[in-house]
Amino acid sequence: MIIPHPLLGPRDAQEFVYLGDASLMNRPDGMTAGIEAFHDWLYQRDNPAGIHRELWYHEQGDRSWLVVTRNTLTHEILGAELARDVARAMGRTK
């Protein structure tokens, strides 16, 4: 597969490490959330046949974590964003 890196253009997926569902970005706050919330966040996943947002790490590249949108039925990659930008857009800024 080829992943369209937002900074580096098309790169072979062999350079990346796959983590999983991008919902992992929504980590609960460990000071306020309890075991149930952490459990659901860590273990409960959708398994969509179709569009899936997932985390990939450009380990053999610029070390960026990306949010890649992929169609699990066709492997077509519909986009890739820097995870840091996505996280900040989710409000993770000081």
């Binding site: 900074l7 253009g9 840091r84």
Partner: peptide, 17 residues
């Protein structure tokens, strides 16, 4: 990103954001 450039004493290349 993805570039190298040379200056008078230092050269530099981009490695990560």
């Amino acid at each position: 990103p993805a570039r190298h450039a040379a200056g008078p004493t230092h050269a530099a290349f981009w490695v990560a954001p």
